Amino acid sequence: MSTVPGAAPRAAGDGAPLVGVLALQGGVDEHLAALADAGARTRAVRLPGELEGLDAIVIPGGESTVLRGLAGALGLLGPLRGAVEGGLPVLATCAGLVLCAGGPSGGPGVLDVDVRRNAFGPQLASFETRLDVEGVGADVEAVFIRAPVVVRVGPAGRVIATVDGRVVGVRQGAVTALSFHPELTADRRVHRAFVERVRR
């Protein structure tokens, strides 16, 4: 049995939530595997029709302008925004956070936050650390790759994680957005907490 917190898989039965992963760029397979370990049924989402029937969606990392361009070309941005505004829970990581913030990224704009892209430096400045994430736990493994930081959080938002005083995790309604990549570690607590919130 694994000694990594949150790593023990659970069987995804018929009552398990169906969680989509926006499958345009980034750690799609890694998110799908982490969600399955957390007890969810999963679906890769590339077309608007694949949003139907989802209980939640993950918007992974990558490059935010490329993600926006691909989602726009495939007709996903409008339906995705509508689904999230309708209450579909979201876990957004790294570029997914930028996309959810909208603004210059042209994304769905479902978070009232401002972000600064590549706030920790270029690819060579990537790093791993452990941090506390509200609603998830202490000492959560986190991988930062050209990561953004949140520089303003609107009144509806809540800061749930920081690194050296910089905001790297926020929650607003059913949207949880993180600057880092939880899918690139063996620590499944972020995905387990997300799946549990969806179940509730």
Rank of each mutant, 00 (worst) to 15 (best):
R146Q: 13
R189E: 01
L111Q: 04
A177F: 11
Q172N: 11
P9K: 13
V195N: 14
P155H: 15
G106N: 15
A71T: 04
F120V: 05
Q25D: 12
V28I: 15
S105K: 02
G62M: 00
A71W: 06
T129D: 14
L74W: 14
A161V: 05
V98L: 14
A36M: 05
G15L: 10
V58T: 09
V150E: 04
V143N: 12
T162L: 00
T65K: 07
G157W: 00
G20R: 04
R158H: 12
G13N: 12
G72Y: 03
G82W: 00
P48F: 10
D187Q: 09
G69D: 15
A101I: 14
G165M: 10
A73P: 01
R130G: 06
A11L: 14
R166T: 12
V136Q: 05
P17R: 14
L91E: 03
C100S: 14
V198R: 00
G49E: 13
A7P: 12
V159Y: 09
T176P: 02
V21Y: 00
R117N: 08
D29S: 06
V170G: 05
Q25W: 10
A16M: 01
H31W: 05
A34H: 03
V133G: 11
V153I: 13
P182C: 09
A38E: 03
P89V: 11
R146V: 15
L91I: 13
A56P: 00
V149E: 15
E52T: 13
V195S: 08
G165P: 10
H181S: 12
G27F: 02
A56D: 03
G154L: 04
V140H: 11
T3G: 13
A40F: 08
V66M: 13
R171I: 06
P5Y: 08
S64F: 02
V168C: 08
P60D: 09
L77H: 01
A40M: 07
V149R: 11
L80M: 09
L54W: 03
R192S: 07
P148V: 07
A161T: 13
G75D: 00
I57R: 02
P89N: 14
R188E: 12
R197I: 02
R41H: 09
H191L: 07
R199G: 02
V195E: 10
D29A: 11
G75L: 03
A193S: 15
V115F: 10
V84F: 00
E134P: 07
C94R: 03
H31M: 06
L77W: 04
P155A: 15
R188Y: 08
F127L: 07
A156P: 05
T65G: 14
L24N: 00
V58D: 05
V110C: 04
R117W: 06
V175L: 07
D29E: 08
E30A: 13
G62P: 08
P79Q: 00
G135E: 08
V115D: 11
P60K: 02
D29R: 15
D139R: 15
N118V: 11
Q172L: 14
R146M: 11
Q172H: 07
E128I: 01
